[in-house]
Structure formats: C-alpha cells, structure tokens
Simulated assay, not measured.
Amino acid sequence: MSSSSGLASATIMGYFLRLLQLFSTCLAFSLVATTGTWRETIGNWSMFIWCFCFVVTLLTFIVELCGLQFLWPFSWDDFLINYASYSTLLCLSASIIYPTTYLQIVPRGSSWNHAIAATAFSCLASVTYATEVAWIYAWPSQITCYVLPMPGLLKGLENFVACVIFGFISNTSLYLHQPALMWCVAAYSICLFLGAVALLLYLRGYSNKLPICFPIFLLGLALFSIFLYASALILWLLYQFDKNFGGQPQRSNDVSCRHHHLVCIWDQRLVVAILTVINLLIYVADLVYWARWVFIRD
C-alpha cells in the first residue's frame, strides 16, 4: 500500500515539474519572439534551447500521461535524468548568454522588460530541471544513470561545453573563410557525435557487446578527442589571433567591437578559445580516469 502511494505521489510530482518546465520555457521563447531581440547568432542559440526543451518536455509529458513509456527502447528513468541534467545546463547557459548579450544593447522599454522576463523564466526552467534531477536521484529506484557517476559527469560536461561552443560558432563568418578553422568546427562536431554515441551505447545496453571492453573504448575515445581538441585549439588560436595567419590579436582592431555590442565577433572568438581549453582539460581528466580504471584498477 505504501509503495502504491509513493508511486502515485512520484507521478504527481513529475507532472507538476513537467508543467512548470513547459510554462517557463514557453514563456521564455514567446517573450523573446514577440520583441525580435533574438535575430543574431547568440540569440538564435538561446531560442533554440528554449524551443528544444519545450518540445522534448511536451513529448515526455504526453508519453507519461498516456503511459507509453514501454515503447521507449531505453530505460525511461535513465532518459529522464539524462534529459533533465542536460536541460538544466542548457537553460542555465541561455540564462547567462542571452541577458549578457542583449540587456546592454536593448533600449529601456517594453523590449527590455520582455528580455528581463524571458531571462527570469529561463532561470526558472533551469531550477525546475535541476529539481527534477535531484528528485529522481533521491527517489528510491533502480536507476543506473550514466550522468551521475564520475565518468558520466565528465561526459555530460564535455557534451555540454561542446553545445555552448556551437552556440558561439553558429556565426559562420567566424570560420567559413578559412579551411583550418573549418577543421576546428569538424573536430568539435566529431567529438560531440562520438560522445553522444557512447552515451547511447550505454543507455541501449550495448556497452558489453562491443568487440573491445567498454572502458578501453572510452579510453581510446578520450585520447582521440584530446588529439582533435588540441589540434582545434592550436589552429583556432593561430588563425583567429595571430596576425601572420590573418587573425586579429587585438579587440580594438575588430570593427564589430566599435559598435555598442557587449559581445562582438572578437569576443566570440575568444570565448570559443576559452571553452576549447576547458573542454580539452575535461577530456584529459576523462583520459586519466579511464587510464587508471584500465591499467591500475586491477
């Protein structure tokens, strides 16, 4: 009886969080869409985050409401906590990037008020997704989640930082003029794709069906990703900031920075470089973890 009561309360809690998530993400992108303060690359990224979270959360809500979880090929609990974890990070990034980019350039008035409100609802979405993560983790169940252990946390951070990088390089003028910079984008894409594949292999239960041991596979993946990110970092720094390679070493030389934009093109280049360093360090930590697991654990 107590078990049934607990399940009922868990379902009610899940519906309540889901409705809050739908409400906050819907209002965030609706407020921004009505003001037109998103028609730049960074704004596009924030709008994509809110729309993506709204659509996936709506589909999740419909599946749970209709009891169709059995049609999902993976563990439903694992999907929920992984999705909630990524949505927390994505909405948090939008809550930081959007106001940082637009509140300084939008004139005071209705548009400014809408941008403030959209930021507040984005923060609310981050809180509700984070609450769902904490609630699922605290609920006594047989969750074998890939996000919560250390390797899963590292993989989640790698994918999250990569998504933020793509938010900044959505401005194609940063790299389309130079093949070396296009290689950097390819390196980010390959690493994100392989990270998603590793996650799906785990969730689908295929981690033990690979021709090699899964930890060895992840060790090789981390090593390969380090090579890609190291090459991307070197090329990005050379071709974006070295004058000998056509880069702009000083912010004042960038014409876009002379306009009243808080985050100009030069700033975007710098942010991508910083995020590349951060992700490279995360991959190094990932490599160290799996190297210890493979070579020292026994």
Rank of each mutant, 00 (worst) to 15 (best):
L90N: 05
T100N: 05
S122W: 01
H114T: 13
A94W: 00
C91G: 05
Y102E: 15
L92Y: 02
N113H: 06
P99C: 04
N113V: 07
I96S: 03
I96D: 00
A94S: 05
L89M: 07
S111M: 12
V106N: 03
P107N: 00
A115V: 12
Y98G: 02
L90H: 02
S126N: 02
Y102D: 13
A117C: 08
A125V: 00
A115L: 12
Q104Y: 15
A125R: 02
A94D: 00
L103T: 09
W112L: 08
I105H: 10
T119L: 12
Y129R: 10
A120Y: 08
A115C: 15
T119M: 13
S93I: 04
T128A: 15
S126Q: 03
L89W: 02
T101R: 12
T101S: 12
R108A: 14
L89K: 06
I96P: 03
I116F: 06
S93T: 06
L90R: 06
P99H: 01
L124E: 09
L90W: 05
Y129N: 14
R108L: 14
Q104F: 15
P99Q: 03
V106G: 06
G109S: 07
T128P: 08
S111Q: 13
C123A: 12
L90D: 01
L90I: 06
I116K: 10
I96L: 00
L90M: 07
Y102I: 12
L89P: 01
Y98R: 03
S110C: 10
S110Q: 11
L90V: 01
A117M: 07
T88R: 11
I96Y: 05
C123W: 09
I96T: 00
S126F: 11
I97A: 14
A120K: 09
I116D: 01
S110P: 07
Y129E: 14
L103E: 09
C123H: 00
S111D: 13
Q104A: 14
T100R: 03
L90S: 00
T119W: 10
P107W: 02
S95E: 06
T119S: 15
A120H: 08
A120R: 09
I116G: 00
L124F: 11
L124R: 07
